[in-house]
Structures are given as structure tokens and as C-alpha cells.
Design a protein around this nucleic acid. Structure first.
Length: 557
DNA sequence: TAAGTCAGGTTGTCCTATAT
DNA sequence: ATATAGGACAACCTGACTTA
């Protein structure tokens, strides 16, 4: 480096020297001791007002943003500093007056707080010699305090990752719950927008979802596409955390395929608005010369032959489907777990524990069958709901079932006799009597409508199938509850095929949505055998945690 | 043919009712 | 009092149509 590089720094160094020579220490100072420095600019009332409002709404971070003051009787207080209770900062003796030269607006805003107990701040205390011995530097310091700081504003993704790292520390017992809560709140408080605060908080609440988003955010080019407010509102709809976590993982995988072996890529190609992400839309648009995908290897048209997905997560394609799922779950829950559980599920209360989301509820229903073992099976049920959601929704309509709260036992009885998709779904619970409403579930579909003979035949047939698939009711693509969850090969190519296979199911055939569907059609390898792999590959709780340590270590800092 | 305009549809954010 | 979730609304984008 050339000496010129340092020229700019000389003045800054002088400022730091002046300060460090006269810094007495950090103290807690009562507001009644603080007066504005005579050289300070006039107070801007509207600025004080907005600060005060923020203090009221979000809170005050006194230690994160200490003010700077000079104290006339500098040297004499060094010895006097009365220590506060135990390890906290010492309090400045309250007979001393200090002059604030950096942070007077915060002080003034803090004065407007109702409670006397709020009237203090954390201050860097300087002796008055800083002013007499370094008058020029002092003026500059005071001015610099008012300049806009050219800080790099953290993005939602940065905030999310910080929160997620805290979660990881906490879940590995490396910090106490108190430390974890305190630091999370500190980070959230620094977010100005309340919707964003809420959203981020929702997203880190559940391990599975938080982990999947964190791995997506490992890709720098995806970070600008992350919107804490919208993701945190829409993706938690119906509390299908694990399902959404899978969707996020799919999305990440798709993006990885899209960029191919390319090393560096900007975020632009991933910021296409959702309406432009339909297969038809893309087919037309990638032909244009200035399409954002021109960055990709081989150009936009080649990239299209690979894969895609992204802005869709919060688009109507996903959000609408989650709303459907929510509606479906509101019928499955009273049937299996009972009305009180439904009330808890649909009450507008914060997500607290495993009793208020579908996977947790289904686990409780299946408690005896699972024998307390961690199992992916409840999620498998959710996944089957997801696969069949269109049919499930339309059959509700066909058989005149409206809101769950208004549906009587008779209505469900009719539904289970007439609708095969609903019968199939409820069969996954493997109960002859559904405990929620004490409803009998016929062993074979349509048993009541057909002659007894046919029903018997069906029952025998089903039983035989069941034996072959070791107790699985719907033998085609189900995964048994006792089948151990394990990760299949980590080979990227296998993952890709697997991913694409799963995608074929994620999107609704028959809607114009979206690349993935056509993708499935283009890939002959996407068969039922791939589908079958999906559920077991979904990370079990333990696997999720090991993933976490992985991402935490690799994540940028 | 290119530029401009309008309508329709989607998304993201703000507001508010509600339940604890 | 607080937090959630649904609804409303404004901003934005796209594509079709019109005009020079």
C-alpha cells in the first residue's frame, strides 16, 4: 500500500487520539445532570418527537448508543465513580453536571418519557481538557456526531441470519434462554418496520422453517430477494412449518440448478416478479435480449431449460395453496383430535408449542402408534394432504361442507362415505374409529354404498395389499411410520432428481403455474419412485440440527 | 414499427377487530 | 395491554390495444 492511502486517515487519527487521551470512562448519568453543550446546534423538535415515539413503541437502547459528554471537574471523579449494583456500569456522582456534545436529541427525547425511572443514559465521559487542549478536534467531533452516518443498512436477510445464529446457539445450550431472548429482542428492536419485526419473529420461531431459510440465505444472490415482512406473514399460514420448509428447500435447489456451475451471479435474475414466473411468460420473455437471465451461462433460453422458482413463495400459487391446506386441516383436526384442538388451532393466538400446529396435533393423535418415537409420519400425512389438496377442496364443496365450526357429525359421515380422497386421507391415521367425533371409518371405501359382497371383496383386497406393504393402508406411495428416517445419498445429482420429482407434486397440475410443472413433463426420470423418496428425505429433527451446525459454520460473518 | 396508454391482476404494507 | 391475523388499499407490473 502507498502512503497516500493513509492521508485520509490522519485527521481521523487525531480525533481518536484526542478522545482517548481524555476519556474518563463510561458511566450511567441521570438526565437531570445533563445540559446541552453551549456549542451544540439548536434542538430539532420534530426529530426529538420522532425519537420519543420510537422509544415508546420499540424501546430504548442506551448501551448500544452511548452519548458523549464532558465533565468540568474531570480528574476528580475518576476516583469517585460510585459503582452501581454488582457488574453494571458505575453511576456518575449525581452532584456533577455534564455537557452533552453528542446525543442531545436522544437525551431530550428520553426526558419526555413518562416514568422517572427511564431518565438516565449511558455516557462516555470526557474531561474538559478535550475541549481546551484539542479545540479544533472537539468542534469536528461535535459536528461529525450530527452527520449522517454512512452505514451499510442491514438487509432483512442479515437480520434473519443473525437471529437464526442466536437460535442455533440456544438450541445447542451454548447460551442461556435469558441471553438468547435478550439478544433476539435487541436485534428485533433495531428493525424499524413493525411488520418486518413480526415477520422475522415468526420465521425463527420454528426450527425446521428457520433452518431451511437460513440455508437458502447462504446464497448471497438470494438475500436481496428475502422479505421478512411478507415471508413471515404468508409462509406461516396454517402453521405448516415443515411443509413450507420443504418448499423453501426446493426453491433453493431450483435456484442452484438455474445458475449451474456459474461462480458469480447477481441477484437480479432471481428478482423477477411472480407474474413473470409462469412457464408461458418465461418462454416468451427469455427470448428478449435484455431479460435478466442473460447473466446465466448459455443465456436466458438455456437457463430456462434447467429449472426455476423463487418469487413464487409468497405469490398466490403458494400462499393460496397454504390457505387451502388451512381449510382442509380445519376439517381433519376435529375429526381426529376433536373440537377443542380445533379451537386452539384457529384461535388467533401466537404459536407456542406442538399442540397448535398440524404436525404436532397429528403426532398427538398417533401417539400410541408411534410409541413416543420421533417420526416423520405425521408430516407424511400433511404431505399427502398437500398432494391431494385440490381434490380435497373440491369434494368439500361437492358435498356441501363449509366451515369446520358449522359442520356436524352427519356431514362428516356423509363425506367419508362419498369422497374417496377424504377417505384415503383419514385412513392414514389407521384407526377404525376416528377419536375426534367417534366416527366409524369404513375399512373399504364405499362399503356402505355397495353390496356387502363387494365390500367384503374390497376389504380382503385391501388387507392383502396392506400385508404386502407392512401395514401401510394406501400402499402406492406411502411411507410406513416405523421406517427409519435417513438421508439418502448426498450426491448432488440424486438430490436434483429427487428435488424435481418432489416438485412435480408441489404444483397443481392444470393450473398455468409454473415452470415446475412443465419441468416435470420434460424430465422422464420423474416417476413415482422419486416421489416415494420425498418423505424420508425430509430432515428429521436430529438431522435438522446437524444441518444447522453446518450452516452456522459456513455462514458468512 | 415504435412508443404510449389503459385495464386487469398481484403483491406488499398498513389498519383494525379480536382474543388472550 | 398486547399480539395476531384478516381485510383493505395503494403501488406496481404486464399485456393488449391505439396512435403516430
Amino acid at each position: 500500500m502507498t502512503p497516500q492511502t493513509y492521508v485520509d486517515g490522519h485527521q481521523g487519527q487525531a480525533l481518536i487520539k484526542a478522545q482517548s487521551a481524555h476519556l474518563i470512562g463510561r458511566y450511567i448519568v441521570g438526565l437531570q445532570q445533563i445540559e446541552p453543550h453551549p456549542l451544540q446546534q439548536e434542538l430539532d423538535d420534530s426529530w426529538v418527537h420522532s425519537l420519543h415515539q420510537r422509544f415508546e413503541e420499540v424501546g430504548i437502547d442506551r448501551f448500544g448508543f452511548p452519548i458523549k459528554v464532558v465533565v468540568p471537574a474531570g480528574d476528580s471523579i475518576i476516583a469517585m465513580g460510585t459503582t452501581g449494583n454488582d457488574s453494571s456500569l458505575p453511576c456518575l456522582p449525581d452532584n456533577l453536571k455534564v455537557f452533552v456534545y453528542h446525543g442531545q436529541h436522544r437525551v431530550e427525547a428520553c426526558r419526555r418519557m413518562m416514568h422517572q425511572s427511564e431518565h438516565w443514559w449511558c455516557a462516555e465521559v470526557y474531561s474538559q481538557e478535550i475541549e481546551t487542549e484539542h479545540p479544533a478536534e472537539f468542534i469536528t467531533l461535535m459536528h461529525m456526531g450530527n452527520e449522517d452516518e454512512h452505514r451499510l443498512a442491514p438487509s432483512d436477510a442479515d437480520r434473519f441470519l443473525a437471529l437464526h445464529r442466536l437460535v442455533c446457539l440456544y438450541s445447542k445450550n451454548q447460551v442461556t434462554e435469558e441471553t438468547f431472548q435478550g439478544n433476539s429482542e435487541q436485534i428485533l428492536q433495531s428493525v424499524l418496520n413493525s411488520t418486518t419485526r413480526q415477520g422475522l419473529s415468526n420465521l425463527v420461531h420454528t426450527k425446521e422453517l428457520a433452518h431451511s431459510i437460513a440455508s437458502a440465505m447462504e446464497y448471497l444472490f438470494l438475500r436481496p430477494c428475502f422479505n421478512g415482512a411478507t415471508w413471515g406473514k404468508k409462509l406461516v399460514k396454517g402453521r405448516f412449518f415443515k411443509l413450507v420448509a420443504c418448499l423453501v428447500e426446493e426453491m433453493t435447489e431450483q435456484c442452484r440448478l438455474l445458475i449451474g456451475p456459474q461462480a458469480e451471479i447477481s441477484a437480479k435474475p432471481f428478482q423477477l416478479p411472480a407474474p413473470s414466473c409462469t412457464w408461458d411468460g418465461l418462454t416468451k420473455r427469455v427470448k428478449k435480449s435484455n431479460h435478466p437471465w442473460k447473466e446465466f451461462i448459455g443465456g436466458a433460453e438455456q437457463a430456462l431449460l434447467r429449472v426455476l422458482l423463487l418469487a413464487l413463495l409468497t405469490s398466490d400459487g403458494i400462499y393460496g395453496s397454504l390457505k387451502d391446506m388451512y381449510h382442509i386441516a380445519q376439517h381433519v383436526i376435529p375429526l381426529t383430535a376433536g373440537r377443542p384442538t380445533l379451537d386452539l388451532y384457529i384461535s388467533n393466538t401466537p404459536h407456542k408449542n406442538d399442540s397448535d400446529h398440524p404436525v404436532g396435533i397429528f403426532s398427538a393423535v398417533l401417539k400410541e402408534k408411534l410409541q413416543g418415537k420421533a417420526s416423520n409420519y405425521p408430516h407424511k400425512i400433511v404431505y399427502s394432504m398437500w398432494e391431494a389438496r385440490q381434490e380435497l377442496m373440491s369434494e368439500l364443496k361437492t358435498y356441501g361442507i363449509g366451515l369446520a365450526a358449522e359442520t356436524q357429525r352427519e356431514g362428516y359421515k356423509r363425506l367419508l362415505c362419498k369422497s374417496e380422497s377424504w377417505w384415503n386421507l383419514l385412513c392414514m391415521f389407521k384407526m377404525s374409529t376416528l377419536p375426534g367425533q367417534s366416527l366409524h371409518l369404513p375399512k373399504a371405501f364405499g362399503e356402505l354404498d355397495q353390496s356387502k359382497q363387494e365390500g367384503l371383496l374390497n376389504a380382503i383386497k385391501k388387507k392383502q395389499e396392506g400385508d404386502q406393504t407392512s401395514g401401510i393402508v394406501n400402499g402406492q406411495n406411502s411411507v410406513g411410520p416405523t421406517r427409519p428416517t435417513k438421508h439418502h445419498s448426498c450426491s448432488p445429482s440424486l438430490e436434483i432428481e429427487h428435488t424435481a420429482g418432489a416438485l412435480a407434486n408441489y404444483f397443481v397440475p392444470g393450473t398455468e403455474m409454473r415452470v415446475t410443472r412443465s419441468l416435470a413433463a420434460k424430465r422422464p426420470c420423474l416417476t413415482a419412485s422419486n416421489e416415494e423418496q420425498l418423505a424420508p428425505v425430509l430432515p428429521a429433527d436430529e438431522a435438522g440440527e446437524s444441518d444447522t451446525s453446518h450452516t452456522a459454520e459456513q455462514g458468512p460473518n
